[in-house]
Amino acid sequence: MNILITRHDKIGDFITTLPLFFTIKRHYPQAKVFALVSKVNFELAEQVDFIDEVILYDTNHFLQTLNAVKKANIEISISAFIDTQLGCILLLSRIKTRIAPATKLAQVLFNKTLKQRRSQVEKTEVLYNLDLAKILDKDINLIFKPPLLTLTKNNHFRNKHQLGNKKIVLLHPGYGGSSDGNLTLENYIELANTVREQNNTQVVWTFGPDDLNTKNQLQALNSKEDLIYQPPTLLDFCHLINDSELLISTSTGPMHLAGALNIETISFFGDSLFASPKRWATVNDLNKQHNFIFDTHFKLVDAVYVIREVLC
């Protein structure tokens, strides 16, 4: 049996779908599990132990994506996020069972749908995604344990910068447009000062391709003790996170990468219910998630306290 799970949007969205991949592969160990993902997640998806094959969802080449899905001879598809183009690809691929949330007009292209009302935020995105598996088997075991992403140890960054056994703490002040709650750069600098006060630590500032303005601002204010790093690839970023003690960021892709690797996180969320950790909490152990709502009650000193507790 060939099963296709699709999530063709951003990094964090794909990570919140990993528990679904895991539970499907565990429940159907003889099945071949395919992933249909966007270009940004393709290399990452190839590293996931419970994904057997990855297909690129190329929004600019409909026929190429369609032919790749057809070639896989998929019998069941599960889509955590849908649009009309995806629905057409799966329908034209003659997939017998096409599972999706009952949302948007595109739902008419799927023959097994589930009403979820995700905008009401009754559970996390992870749990909404997992609920789709119940359409195949209502008794399926949905329990999973971190880490969901395991990588071979890679000390390249540590060795290059002669960090020895220092605890690497990553600060990622950018957000690539995916979060509506974030600290100021000055706030992040204050948190970096707290990290430096702890014994045997190294501050590393990280930036994505959409964070160049923030990177330029930081370079004018940065402590000479800190390192600034823009990972050349997403997989390089994953290896650095995997070798780190803590990641401090807003609710964005790197937070979810750290979650998948079960690395400790301090994360800042917008104050709307939809943007909150009630919807977008990541997948590391609960005791490794330190989530703050960026509202009128937020106090930076609370994050400072957590940094000291984690690094003591």
Rank of each mutant, 00 (worst) to 15 (best):
M1F: 09
I11K: 05
F21N: 08
T23G: 07
R26K: 15
Y28G: 02
A35W: 07
E43W: 09
E46Y: 08
I51Y: 08
H61F: 11
F62N: 06
Q64S: 13
A68L: 05
A68I: 03
K70F: 03
E75A: 14
S79L: 05
C88T: 12
L90T: 03
A100H: 02
P101C: 01
L109C: 00
R117N: 14
T124Y: 00
L130Q: 07
L130A: 01
D131F: 00
A133N: 05
I135L: 15
L142F: 06
P146W: 10
P147W: 11
L148M: 10
H156G: 09
N165G: 04
V169K: 08
V169R: 07
L170E: 05
L170W: 06
L171K: 03
S178F: 02
G181H: 09
G181E: 07
E186G: 03
E190P: 05
N200Y: 02
N200I: 00
Q202M: 05
Q202G: 02
D210A: 14
L212P: 00
Y229L: 09
Q230C: 05
L234Y: 09
L234K: 01
L235T: 14
I241W: 07
N242L: 04
G253W: 10
G259P: 02
E264D: 14
L273H: 11
F274S: 05
A275C: 04
P277R: 05
A281C: 11
T282Y: 12
D285M: 12
L286H: 13
Q289C: 06
Q289Y: 04
F292S: 06
F294I: 15
T296I: 12
K299L: 11
L300S: 06
V301Q: 13
